[in-house]
Simulated assay, not measured.
Amino acid sequence: MGRRRLTGAGRAGGSAGRVAAVPVTGSAPAARAGAGAWYDGAMNDELHAKAVDTFIEAANTADPERRATLLGRALTDDVVFWGPLGRGVGRKAVEDFITEVVQRHPSGSCLMVRTTRVDAPDEWARYGWRYESAAGEPLLSGMDIVHVAAAGDIDEIVVFAGPLT
């Protein structure tokens, strides 16, 4: 898909409610925020979705070696991770968070599930997620914002967990 000019229809503030309603498998990117900007939407969405899905697969993997391999594919060495417990730098910080918080949840074996498509207007992307029990019960949901480097690896993750009230 070629480059396209954005219109004002998808400006920030008016599109937030529609994002979660778009299925993960949706093929056409919605209008993006930033009237007048140019981007290659389909390519960004696919590149970013690959990195995000690899990161989520790593979060769901119990095998430490497999998790490290997946994180090596999804994240830069010096990734900055802004999580619910504070800021961490490097793949090891992300791996430790996954091991200590995600994999050792009191509810037992849980899964991280992407609930929206990856919306990537440029090098930044956002996506919705849900953390659920093995029975599929939602335990927590939120939205992550990630920055993807030119090589396609995530170099910054900002986690927003829980609803805004």
Rank of each mutant, 00 (worst) to 15 (best):
A59C: 15
N60H: 10
N60F: 06
N60C: 06
N60K: 05
T61M: 00
T61Y: 09
T61N: 06
T61W: 11
A62Y: 10
A62R: 14
D63I: 01
P64W: 02
P64E: 03
P64Q: 12
E65Q: 15
R66E: 12
R67H: 05
T69Y: 14
T69S: 12
L70D: 09
L70T: 02
L71C: 09
R73L: 15
R73V: 00
R73P: 03
A74W: 06
A74Y: 08
L75Q: 08
L75G: 08
L75D: 11
T76G: 13
D77E: 15
D78K: 09
V79Q: 12
V80D: 03
V80G: 04
F81R: 01
W82G: 12
W82P: 03
G83E: 11
L85C: 06
G88P: 01
V89M: 07
V89N: 03
G90A: 10
R91S: 10
R91I: 05
R91H: 11
K92W: 03
K92V: 13
A93I: 07
A93T: 05
V94F: 04
E95V: 01
E95A: 14
F97E: 05
F97T: 06
I98W: 01
I98P: 00
T99I: 09
T99P: 04
E100V: 12
V101I: 15
V101L: 12
V102F: 12
V102E: 08
V102D: 04
V102A: 05
Q103F: 00
H105L: 02
H105Y: 02
P106V: 01
P106H: 04
P106R: 02
S107E: 14
G108L: 00
S109A: 15
M112D: 09
M112N: 04
R114W: 00
T115N: 04
T116I: 05
R117S: 09
R117C: 04
V118P: 11
A120R: 09
P121N: 07
D122N: 15
D122W: 09
D122I: 09
E123Q: 14
W124C: 12
W124V: 02
A125E: 09
R126F: 08
R126A: 13
Y127A: 05
W129Y: 12
W129Q: 00
W129K: 06
W129S: 04
Y131T: 01
E132T: 07
S133C: 08
S133V: 02
S133D: 13
S133E: 07
S133P: 04
A134R: 12
A135C: 01
A135L: 12
E137C: 01
P138H: 05
L140W: 13
S141N: 13
S141F: 09
S141L: 10
S141R: 14
G142I: 06
D144K: 08
D144P: 04
V148P: 07
V148W: 10
A149V: 02
A149C: 07
